[in-house]
Simulated scan of single mutants.
Amino acid sequence: MALVGKQFPNVTIDAMSEMGDNLRINILEEATKNQSKVLLFWYPKDFTFVCPTELHAFQEALAEFEKRNTKVIGASCDTNEVHFAWLNTPKDNGGIEGVTYPILADTHRHLSSILGILDQEIDYNEETGEETFSGGNVTFRATYLIDETGKIFHESVNDMPLGRNVAEYLRLIDAYTHVQKHGEVCPANWEEGKDAMNADRKSTAEYLSKH
C-alpha cells in the first residue's frame, strides 16, 4: 500500500547514536517539532555486505542533506547493542566506524510491519492449522522522505542485492523544496537550476518545445 501523501506513522522506536547513547526516536516528531525534512532509510542487517557501502555513502553526503534541512536516520531490525558493535568496527573490516547519524533498532518489527517492508511470508495450512514462515524477517532497502509536516513525499523499496543511489534523494529533496517555494512542478530529470513548469498544458508544451 502506497504511503506517499500520508502522515508518517506516529511510532517511537529505540535507536543508537554514534556515541553509544541509547535513544528513543519518533520520526514524525523529528520532522514536525524540528521543522525539518527527514530521510529514513532501512537496510536488512548489520555486518553484511551491501549495507555498509550504503551507510558510508549517506555519511559522505551528510553535509549536503544538512544544507537542505534534512535529517538522515538509518534503520534495521538489529538491536542497539549490535548497532553499537558495528559502529565500533573499522571501515576496512566491513564496519561503519565514522557514521554519525542515529540508527533505529526496530527489534520488535513494529514500525517495519506497519510500513509493510519486511521480507516475510506466512502460509497457513487449513487442514492442520499450521503456520509456516518463510523469508528472512528483515527489511528490504526501503527509503522514505518526510516533509516538515510529517507527510511522506517519496517512498521506494529495493530488493536486498540492490544498493541505493544517494544522489537521487538529494535531487528529490531539491525538487520537492522547489515545489514548496515556487509552486511549480518539476519535469523529468529536473535538477536544481533547471527550468520547472506551471501545472498547465501551455507550460508543458512550451517546455517540451525547448527541450
Score class of each variant (00 low, 15 high):
D119Q: 08
V99P: 01
G98E: 14
Y101M: 15
N10A: 07
L104K: 05
L115R: 07
E29Q: 15
N26M: 14
H211A: 01
K45R: 05
P102Y: 13
E184P: 04
E155H: 15
A57R: 14
E168N: 08
V157R: 06
H182C: 01
E192Y: 05
R24M: 10
M19T: 12
F84D: 01
N93E: 10
E81M: 04
N165E: 10
N125W: 03
K91W: 11
E54H: 08
T128V: 00
T132A: 03
E168A: 01
D92F: 10
T132Q: 15
N189P: 00
L104I: 00
D200W: 11
C51V: 06
Y176I: 03
N88E: 05
T177Q: 06
T177I: 07
Y124I: 03
R164L: 08
G95C: 10
L115H: 05
T100C: 15
A105C: 09
Q180D: 09
I25N: 00
Y43L: 02
R24E: 11
N158F: 02
G5H: 05
K210R: 09
C186A: 07
A15H: 03
G193Y: 06
K194A: 14
R24V: 11
E121T: 13
E121Y: 10
A205N: 08
A15W: 00
K194W: 02
D147N: 09
G74V: 02
A85P: 00
N125G: 00
N198M: 08
